[in-house]
Nucleic acid binder design. Structure first.
Length: 416
DNA sequence: TCTGGGGTCCTAGGACCC
DNA sequence: TCTGGGGTCCTAGGACCC
């Protein structure tokens, strides 16, 4: 059985850990520059304040209801998240998939009767050791577990286990189709146009028909609603393929100089993230745009891709490349609202680059062969890209990629 | 020389998630 | 005045190769 453990109003709960006096008070957390709302307590939700609402549109409500407002403290939330995940890991023997900063999937292997008591116990331990309240949904598939979790949030016990078909269908019948995990605004609109309004109707739809008109992932959702698991637990997620750092500016920026400073800063943050996962990037994309919320002003958006000569994690090199990209994108005379960088074509540090030692003439063949052996043994054959000998040089390998310059032929390597 | 099928790789854009 | 900051996956279409 899959269970999903989801922190309730996570950012708000983190703030409350250090402000217990706000326990039953309305609390919200705002994003960058206090622009819009990114987390709400139940009290704030009950006031009808929407996720993502611009702060300035709800000033009167904040005053009237004395809502406590916090600016997001991502360092704190990241730290609290790690604590919660650690407790979950300690308490469950099954594999853990950290799905987001505030959610984790866990596979439970307990007997059906024990599922809810075990979850209730986990919930109280997490609360006790971290101060964070969580809800837990349990079912045969991830999609059903998510639905169970949605319901669990409304219960004082905070735990729901869906096991018998009858109660599952009962729940699906009252669940609007757009609340199903993976059904967003666009798909919901189309489904409703086809007369499919509830999760139950989606479950009964023909997956082949759904795939033809929507996508393969949408068809998978149908199967998952039927109790056929299509989304396995991923306990060992791959390193990030893209790393993005971007911000909206507090005020509009016109000068290239100011933009360059912002872009350099974002690049260094992105390089830190890259370093943390031990990666090297081969491409950096710079983008910038004006404020789409001010359509009366002239609008401009651009992005520029700058390939790196070779994969790098070096911040200075990345910043230099980002600045070159910015020079290409930048146009004078606009009020810029947001900019960012994306690092991509990421390879693992150990895979992508290393250094060969200088070789003495008489030992050359043996040592080169040793290097080739190590590479072939470690990474599989056909990964050799370039080998050098006789002098200290760097070598490169391309992951799973054929290149006109690759070879594993001993004679070729000797020639190189 | 012409034609076509089968396959891969890359890119852009859409949709979705938290 | 003031409108978040990350990510992933899939699809379609074009280029290219055999």
């Amino acid at each position: 059985m899959f269970s999903i453990i989801d922190c309730n109003n996570f950012y708000v709960s983190c703030e409350r850990v250090f402000r217990p006096d706000l326990e039953h008070q309305p609390v919200l957390v705002t994003g960058n520059n206090d622009g819009c709302i990114i987390a709400r307590s139940n009290e704030v939700k009950a006031l009808g304040i929407a996720m993502g609402a611009p702060l300035h549109t709800i000033r009167p409500l904040i005053q009237r209801h004395q809502i406590a407002v916090f600016s997001a403290n991502y360092a704190l939330y990241g730290d609290m998240s790690q604590r919660v995940m650690r407790v979950i890991e300690e308490q469950t023997s099954g594999a853990l998939e950290i799905y987001s900063i505030d959610e984790a999937f866990v596979k439970l292997n307990t007997s059906p009767a024990q599922l809810e008591p075990q979850a209730a116990h986990l919930r109280s331990i997490v609360r006790q050791q971290t101060g964070i309240p969580v809800s837990i949904g349990i079912a045969a598939t991830k999609t059903l577990a998510k639905l169970a979790n949605t319901c669990a949030k409304k219960l004082p016990t905070g735990v729901i286990s869906l096991s018998d078909d009858h109660s599952i269908d009962e729940l699906l019948r009252v669940m609007p189709v757009d609340e199903v995990w993976g059904i967003g605004a666009k798909r919901a609109e189309w489904l409703i146009g086809q007369g499919i309004r509830t999760a139950y109707q989606l479950k009964c739809a023909d997956p082949v028909w759904i795939q033809r008109h929507l996508t393969a992932p949408a068809a998978r959702i149908v199967w998952e609603l039927r109790g056929v698991s299509c989304l396995p637990l991923d306990a060992d997620p791959a390193p990030k393929k893209e790393i993005c750092t971007s911000r909206a500016f507090g005020k509009a920026i016109q000068s290239e100089q100011e933009l360059a400073e912002a872009v350099a800063f974002y690049t260094s943050r992105a390089a830190e993230k890259l370093h943390k996962q031990g990666g090297l990037a081969s491409l950096i994309t710079v983008f910038l745009h004006t404020n789409p919320f001010q359509p009366d002003l002239p609008q401009y958006a651009a992005h520029c891709k700058v390939p790196l000569a070779e994969p790098t994690g070096n911040a200075a090199e990345l910043i230099a490349a980002a600045k070159r990209g910015l020079r290409q994108c930048y146009k004078q005379g606009y009020f810029y609202h947001k900019a960012g960088v994306i690092l991509s074509q990421i390879t693992s540090e150990t895979m992508a680059q290393g250094t060969l030692f200088p070789l003495a003439r008489d030992s050359r063949d043996e040592r080169l062969q040793a290097v080739v052996d190590i590479i072939n043994r470690t990474y599989g054959r056909n990964t050799m890209y370039l080998a050098a000998c006789g002098t200290q040089r760097t070598w490169q390998m391309k992951q799973g990629r054929r290149s006109p310059r690759y070879t594993t032929s001993w004679d070729e390597l000797l020639k190189v």
